[in-house]
Design a protein around this nucleic acid. Sequence first.
DNA 1: GTCATAAACTTACGGGCGTAACCTTTGAGT
DNA 2: ACTCAAAGGTTACGCCCGTAAGTTTATGAC
Lengths: 218, 218
Amino acid sequence: MEDDENTGTDTGRPTARARNRRGQGARLRDDIVAAAAGLLAETGDERAITLRSVARRVGIAAPSIYAHFPDQPAIMLAVVREAHVELNGALRHAVDRAGRDPRERLGALCHAYLTFAQDHPERYRTMFGGLWMPALGESSVTERDLTDLGQESLALLADLLAECVAAGASASTDPAADAVALWLGLHGLAHQRAVTRAFPWPAGIAERVITPLAHLTT
Amino acid sequence: MEDDENTGTDTGRPTARARNRRGQGARLRDDIVAAAAGLLAETGDERAITLRSVARRVGIAAPSIYAHFPDQPAIMLAVVREAHVELNGALRHAVDRAGRDPRERLGALCHAYLTFAQDHPERYRTMFGGLWMPALGESSVTERDLTDLGQESLALLADLLAECVAAGASASTDPAADAVALWLGLHGLAHQRAVTRAFPWPAGIAERVITPLAHLTT
DNA sequence: GTCATAAACTTACGGGCGTAACCTTTGAGT
DNA sequence: ACTCAAAGGTTACGCCCGTAAGTTTATGAC
């Protein structure tokens, strides 16, 4: 039936991959991460990211992953790291495009955050859903690896909020702490949107969250 | 080595279960849900809830679950439903104990919500994390089953916020919509706490979220 | 007592998974 | 030209999973 040489085991490798050059072994690492990210985007289910499925997609044998990742959680961590880099880039880009008014810059940041989550729900869920970490002690991923992840975007948010305070656009008395509160509101909205598409959202829910939490002056 | 009669297959049934009486077949259903909930609480990983693991814990054979649940997602839904009932009970209890001052009643509700999430992180994650639903079209669980789940507690929150407005304790102009915003803030905090224990929480983060979102008057 | 039937069991198949142990290709340096 | 290690492949073991098909047990109505 199949004219292929599927003689025995599960070498379900559709795209035979060209072997890398001598020093280029690390390029496979990036391909593995990209494949995992693609798998996540297509299936929307992080359970679909398994050593074998990733290997199949890359076009390599499953054990070949061991040379680059000790674990499946390690792959996850790499995917999440990359996603955070992308998120931070999108946030910075949005802030830069927003001009100089601190209030508009903060608004741009918040909306870019929400847009990112809405455009890539499965990625957002994986970044913050924390499902792949319960087996933490058994995996190669440490707790520090996780806590450091969101700090950059949070710092960006805190900076912009402080800008708003300095410009008189926000009445916050503790921008660093209120930035956390604001982020929590954004996260709640972003996460819930990423989880259930069907929810009776009131109109203008984003502003209803952002304006009070940022203590924006009317 | 094992003096047990493990003759062949995986009937790893440690606690031989007494067969139910004629009309009491539905009691096993409750036991299944309880076992799944226990499994979730102990492992903290909803992936650990599988047909076979649940069956092992109940003390029945895996296929016997089919008589009560068509799916593994169906078990999940039952667990989440029960958890929501429990949450609503806890919220009501807290509100009742809080006396008559609307503002204190609202505060009690919010803190009870956060406490529930902190006391049962894995349950909270499962209730709102939405990991078990990606394979939605393939399972017996419909989208309606999910959207209806949080409505009761949300309605309770909206009622209390309206009470606060009536008593002059809140400046909200649209309690129903602001209740959603307030819930999102609570959810963001609760979820993040349920996901990562290690996070640089500022002091009084809960009030920092609740007070602005509820538009509480100082 | 008998006996239909609810309640649950047994067996078995096919598949996916992680990973240990070993083997092959290939290109760079000599 | 030859080697040798990097990069990756092969095979295989053991485990767990969902579920289809048929079978046993014991309860309660007659």
